[in-house]
Design a protein around this nucleic acid. Sequence first.
DNA 1: ACAGCTGGTGACTGACCAATCACACACACG
DNA 2: CGTGTGTGTGATTGGTCAGTCACCAGCTGT
Lengths: 207, 207
Amino acid sequence: MRNSECSISHMVADVPAPRTTADARRATVLSCAIVVFARAGYYATPVADVAAAAKISPAYVFRLFPSKLALFVAALNACFARVVAALEAGADDAACDDPEKRLAEMGDAYARLIGDRTLLMLQVHALSASDVPEVRHALRRGLEQVVTVARTRTGASPAAVQQFVAYGQLCHLLVATELVGTTPAWATALTAGMAHPDPPATEEDAD
Amino acid sequence: MRNSECSISHMVADVPAPRTTADARRATVLSCAIVVFARAGYYATPVADVAAAAKISPAYVFRLFPSKLALFVAALNACFARVVAALEAGADDAACDDPEKRLAEMGDAYARLIGDRTLLMLQVHALSASDVPEVRHALRRGLEQVVTVARTRTGASPAAVQQFVAYGQLCHLLVATELVGTTPAWATALTAGMAHPDPPATEEDAD
DNA sequence: ACAGCTGGTGACTGACCAATCACACACACG
DNA sequence: CGTGTGTGTGATTGGTCAGTCACCAGCTGT
């Protein structure tokens, strides 16, 4: 039944990761966790779903991460790391020195990043699970990074940073309620000026 | 073991709500559901907790509401009804005719309403559970009411309404992460100008 | 008193799920 | 070949929870 010797090439994607280091596995599990947790949130997604996405057994997830909570917090931290990186890249793109301009460029970069709902929904779910201390602390750390990078990399005023975060939250609301694609006339006031990249349709909305 | 005949009066507070109509019960269960669901969210709170808060058996909750989902959606609708009522009251309080002023008054009314985190957190949890169609639709209906009342009762511009909702969401973020009471210096930019009434401490934070 | 109706519950079930553990497999290095 | 080390899993367990059902208890009309 083994296919070691019969290494004919029509057996594709059968043993996807035959042997890796635990660290590499942890990284892939983390990426899968971001995607899977972003779908239904912390409480509604069993670790078995993450394991299936990473194509390993549920038991091994618990060897790579001490608990479901630790896995979720790690995924949340990775999520914020990506967000901060995108924000910094956006700030770098802005050649202009005007703080408002640079902040607007950052906003565009964020809008581009969350074209797929993944990183956005993970933050929404984390906010909902913020009664768990570890989640709340991770959330605050992430928000601190965002505020810091917005302040230092653009030189914008506190009020501008506040508005930046507020409209980011508005964006979360509109995307989560699916008010971006089909705007029902009463919501045109809310979606106005929201620079959302037109056709998301990346391949992760399969299934 | 029964205490039917030995109805001596030292058994106080034993049968707290001896007999009511089902409609009255439904109303109390709904109020309790708002409070209890606001604590940990839809997936993390069993209906038994709502039943305990309403001092009835879990089985009876399922007689009063067809399912846990229906109960949650009903609680969410009641939540938005209270929010809209508070917003309208705030608009009525503003004697001024200036749209910006009236909207600001509405914002103050909202800040006052969510002095206790209950209605706020329920909205946060609902947003996290918005992948459930019924929840998402209830959320959109609630948001529609909020936008409509903000537009019609203040006459504010669409951009002002958008900002109103955006800063409401920012308020949700700050309260959920407990960034309002102890602001860690990096977050002063975010909490600046947030008119949060100082001592919440209503009696529902007992237990 | 008895029937019929409505408020209310104990006890159960079937499913799901986090976490554990003994074990299997692959590769080292001697 | 044997022993050790690290990758990976099947099977299980203990617990929780949504939803159901048979049943009880009080009220009303006759």
